[in-house]
């Protein structure tokens, strides 16, 4: 019971810290007054800057974390995350493309289309007739698709005029600066639907995790269930990228971190703890990026990259010791 409340408590502490710390520091009294009465300087900061920022971070982190849990469970590999397999860079490329060609389509749609296209490309390229694709091939092909889409993004950026290139650059790094309530509504609105869809498929994922033959024997339509889960996972990742940009490694880190904190075993519980851990990681990364250097606001994506890359290296050496790579 105590263990179950650790993650929510950490999340609450991170939210409070994120609301208090910033260029204009807030006291707890100001925060309380702003929250309860909706008046005073605290309310203004909450309403215009930190409220939307914190809620966007929670929403985006949660959908990214949940997306990571889905892929890591589906492929039974802790390295299979949408940010490693190129889905988030596909979504990022779509956003840069939309900026470059002046499309007026809403960003979540663009990001979702890009993420789905990248995922379909990875699946198609890794597929070979008569073979069941090993997860490691998917990861390698995904890395390659990620390299290629990043190169295309860089290419498009060089075609843009300076101001638009700078905007595209901010997008590609992944940032939570200057979010407003439409971002919050977007990620929470889409997020709630997708989280519900993911939880509804948790039972099937639990059986799939036992192995495909066993799952088929238990009456699961394996291919259909895998496609539905993959689509849900890609859309979750795209929903996060649409409001926060392709922040690196949040999806990769969150699942294992969530399980470590909550000790969850069932798939539904792991999904929820991964979502909670994702929210926590993105909140803390954003806070650290804002507060690390006085007077300078770094994008959150810089911090998740600095935290996530050593994690990936550590994970690799762990997998190596177990003889899985």
């Amino acid at each position: 019971m105590i263990r179950r409340s650790v993650l929510p408590a950490l999340l609450l502490a991170a939210v409070v810290a994120s609301l208090l710390i910033g260029q204009v520091p807030m006291s707890l009294a100001m925060l309380w007054q702003g929250l309860v009465t909706g008046e005073g300087p605290g309310a203004l900061i909450l309403d215009t800057i930190r409220g939307p920022r914190v809620l966007t971070a929670i929403g985006a982190g949660a959908v990214l974390g949940l997306s990571g849990v889905i892929f890591q469970t589906l492929f039974r590999n802790p390295l299979a995350a949408p940010d490693v397999m190129g889905f988030t860079s596909g979504a990022g490329l779509a956003i840069v493309g939309a900026i470059a060609f002046g499309l007026t389509v809403p960003m979540p749609l663009v990001a979702a289309a890009g993420g789905l296209a990248a995922a379909v490309l990875v699946a198609a390229l890794a597929w070979r007739r008569g073979h069941r694709t090993p997860p490691l091939t998917l990861i390698l092909v995904g890395l390659g698709v990620g390299f290629f889409t990043s190169a295309l993004s860089t290419f498009l950026m060089t075609l843009l005029p300076y101001s638009e290139a700078a905007e595209a650059q901010r997008w590609l790094t992944g940032s939570l600066a200057a979010r407003d309530w439409t971002h919050v509504a977007q990620v929470w609105g889409i997020g709630v639907v997708l989280v519900a869809a993911a939880l509804a498929q948790a039972g099937r994922l639990e059986v799939l995790e036992l192995g495909h033959d066993l799952a088929a024997g238990l009456g699961i339509r394996v291919e259909r269930a895998r496609w539905a889960l993959s689509a849900t996972g890609v859309l979750l990742a795209a929903a996060g990228v649409a409001v926060a940009g392709p922040v690196p490694f949040v999806a990769l880190m969150s699942g294992p971190l969530g399980v470590r904190v909550t000790g969850a075993t069932g798939v539904a519980a792991r999904m929820l703890s991964g979502a909670g851990a994702g929210a926590l990681v993105l909140l803390l990364a954003d806070l650290a990026a804002r507060a690390a250097l006085p007077g300078i606001q770094l994008p959150a994506g810089v911090m998740t990259g600095i935290l996530g890359a050593p994690y990936l290296l550590w994970r690799l050496s762990r997998e190596m010791e177990r003889g899985k790579l």
């Binding site: 690196p248 996530g308 890359a309 990936l312 290296l313 690799l316």
Partner: peptide, 25 residues
């Protein structure tokens, strides 16, 4: 090959983040 490639990807991502930070600062 997965391990070495992923290690390279991680190193690239780490350095990219640090460069972004330096350029912005």
């Amino acid at each position: 090959p997965v391990r070495l490639t992923l290690a390279g990807a991680a190193l690239n991502a780490l350095l990219l983040s640090l460069v972004t930070a330096i350029v912005l600062v």
